[in-house]
Design a protein around this nucleic acid. Structure first.
Length: 276
DNA sequence: CTTGTGTCCTGTAGGC
DNA sequence: TGCCTACAGGACACAA
């Protein structure tokens, strides 16, 4: 679930509590949550370090340490972070950083697909090539209709599949891609290379806006999800979803029943009348 | 190179 | 109740 707006929300909520804190102890409850290096070195490299800053790149959360190392967390489908009092142990907790203020940062990840990496900030191991190759952030200077046009040109794949490519739209996932395509009035299954100039401009704008809105409303918390903000609150954007999770419901614009199809093995939601 | 499919892992929901 | 299948916000390896 955590796409760019959810990770950005985590970053903002956690920053005031984490910056300046020292990591006293590291508990790896599930070794396969550690993507790099081996768990022993991972723990040793974190213990005693102070958190200097929190950054984000796409869906990756970056904790800058006073050693010059960087702790990189990726939530994948079901991960989230919580700040808890030390005695408290959460269900599905896979990694814990005990802090010098009596609390701990818990990486909770039921499906164990998420990963934690500890790297020098300037040299990434091959497991992080996805992060290295990531495209510009939506809404940033290097991102816009021109970038999108270059990425979609000549491609026959459904436009939706390309929006999920982090080189094209970093930080975008299944929820925000469906929402952006709805706002742009474009069918998710359209071959990407066949979009008109106008449509690409609309799509670029919709993507920027839907991501900005998602951040503004502190992300999406689906009813069956346990994504919580570190302070225990939920996001608000789920109340503003127009197509995602709305299959069978009437379109908010035209009343047509929202459909759900499968594109590239991902469930995809759209209005068959508004999106052409 | 591009594209579609399967896989990682675990939990939950729904059908029978 | 219990067993089985399908599916889940991501990303990557792999085959054609």
């Amino acid at each position: 679930m955590p796409e760019l707006p959810e990770v950005e929300t985590m970053r903002r909520r956690l920053a005031p509590d984490l910056i300046g804190r020292r990591i006293e102890r590291v508990v790896v409850r599930r070794p396969d949550i550690v993507g790099y290096p081996a768990p022993a070195r991972f723990r040793a490299g974190l213990a005693g370090r102070q958190v200097a800053a929190l950054d984000r790149r796409g869906k990756y959360l970056l904790l800058e340490l006073d050693s010059g190392d960087r702790l990189i967390l990726h939530m994948r489908l079901s991960g989230h972070l919580e700040l808890v009092a030390k005695p408290e142990k959460l269900r599905y907790e896979r990694l814990r950083l005990e802090l010098d203020d009596g609390r701990a940062l818990a990486f909770v990840e039921p499906r164990v697909l998420g990963k934690a990496y500890l790297v020098r900030s300037d040299s990434y191991p091959p497991v992080l090539t996805g992060l290295m190759a990531m495209g510009p952030e939506p809404g940033s200077a290097g991102w816009g209709a021109d970038h999108l046009r270059k990425c979609l040109a000549g491609r026959r794949a459904p436009v939706k599949s390309l929006l999920l490519d982090q080189k094209v739209c970093c930080g975008v996932g299944n929820i925000y891609s469906d929402e952006a395509l709805f706002r742009a009035g474009i069918r998710p299954q359209r071959p990407a290379g066949k979009l008109t100039h106008e449509e690409i401009v609309r799509l670029a704008r919709s993507l920027s806006r839907v991501i900005a809105d998602g951040v503004k409303w502190c992300g999406t918390t689906m009813p069956d999800q346990r994504y919580l903000q570190p302070d225990g609150g939920t996001g608000e954007f789920q109340k503003r979803l127009r197509v995602f999770g709305q299959s069978g419901q009437p379109c908010v614009v035209c009343g047509t029943t929202i459909r759900r199809d499968r594109i590239g093995n991902r469930s995809t939601h759209y209005c068959p009348k508004c999106q052409k």
